[in-house]
Amino acid sequence: MDKKELIKTAHLARLKLSEKEHLEFTDQLKVIFEYFKRISSIDTKDTLPLVYPLDGVESMISLREDKVQTMKEKKAELLDLAPERLGNEYKVPPVVD
């Protein structure tokens, strides 16, 4: 990962980095990804990706019915957690003049 890619990635992650972090991360991630590239040596032709670790091992997974559950009784509590709110809405600083 070079500096240009780092800037692009930080933007995608909505993460502002300091100049010091830019320099540090570029150096560190270069070494780390260089090491990680070794995975390309493994033949994975016809291998399906595994996301759920018990996929194919544990058949006893049970999903609940796809029905909406509300948390209406928690509404006030949830809103109270907001750094800023206006009535029943979340407030963010004005971003356009």
Partner: peptide
Amino acid sequence: IMGTYCLSSGYYDEYYNKASQIRRIIR
């Protein structure tokens, strides 16, 4: 940053998907 990079367009297959395939081999 590492994770966003792995999932970003152009790198998904090389990193996240490949790693998930090897995960199955390990399992």
